[in-house]
Amino acid sequence: MKKNSILYISMVLTGLMLFSTACEDEELNPYVEPLPGVHAFGQFAADSPTNFIIEQTGEDLNINLQWISVDRELEVEKIDVFVLFNESYRDVDNNPLVAEHGGDEGIFYTTIEGGELPANRENTTISISQEDVLNLYNGTTYDYDEDGTAEDVFDNDFKPSRSNDAPFISGDNFSIRWVLYTTDGLVFDSWSPSVCTELPGANCSVDWILECGQVIKEPAQDYTITFNDSYGDGWNGAAISVIVDGEATEYTLADGSTGTEVVTVPEGTTSLSFEFISGDYDSEVSYSIVTEKGNSIAAGGPSPSVGAITLDLCVENE
């Protein structure tokens, strides 16, 4: 019988963290309300872009954030928001690496409190642009070639394509995270992986990338979709829909832990897009999409966002 996770959260005051253990029989009870604690849930507003667009430095992303008191006993009085900026690069030996410029915690961005802080399970909106992130990280240095000399992140030979018009480029990715303060003096600054990835209506960050639009310049080619399932029994109804000139075809993993599908998009195609269709156990599901040129243009999961898949086309469209 297949098992999934039911969450039991215990609050450890000395560490100011939440931990969990997991055990679930999905046929008996798919979800049990956690024990006392607070967490939060962030998602892009319905009318907001979901990624930065290259050279559109002033355009805001709007993120709705709500705090949740599980048993309504604890009340949040303040939320601190931090911004993380990670940069993909290759070292002098051409090894792919990631520079975590904000470390694990990021740089402080804003505080939500007083009249700006909504009630339990109600949204407040955080707006952030490329200009905002640049202001936070401007002057940051990093030792790219590990020779003991740090270079300016926004003016270095490893990324000559950075400019005043395009301070962020392909391979950059971003997140916001939050710290919750309750009225009785508790601080919640981290949660278990189960809360971050499996608990309905909860997460630990909102993530996005720098993209170059969503139109593939050369859509007619082969695309390799790789399907992964952490439990090993297939995607349980989830699928990736490939829409070619308005005609949709669904692809999935029928069984097992991994599989691939090569999708050939014919010559003469004028529009191509991809969508993720939700199944019964999305927390087990992940995927990647790689073009004929060898570029990874999309990856998602576990618990991929439902609907249109955002493509990373900066390298593909060069």
Rank of each mutant, 00 (worst) to 15 (best):
D71P: 11
E250A: 15
F108S: 14
D245M: 14
S190D: 15
P304N: 01
L74D: 00
F274C: 09
M11N: 15
Y109N: 08
F274R: 07
T291L: 00
N236D: 15
W191Q: 13
C212G: 11
L61T: 11
G103M: 05
I169V: 15
K3C: 07
G307Q: 04
D80F: 00
V76Q: 08
V83Y: 03
G279W: 00
I240S: 06
G114F: 04
E24C: 08
F41K: 13
F85E: 07
D147M: 00
V242A: 06
F85C: 08
Y89V: 12
L253N: 12
V285A: 11
A239C: 15
K159D: 02
N123P: 05
Y137M: 12
D157H: 13
N86F: 04
E198S: 10
S278W: 01
W208N: 13
Q214V: 14
G256T: 14
Y31G: 01
G171E: 00
G42A: 06
S286I: 06
D172V: 11
T270E: 14
E27T: 12
A40M: 12
V81F: 01
N164I: 07
C204W: 09
N138Q: 10
E261C: 11
S5C: 12
E33V: 14
P167W: 02
E151H: 14
N62F: 00
N4R: 09
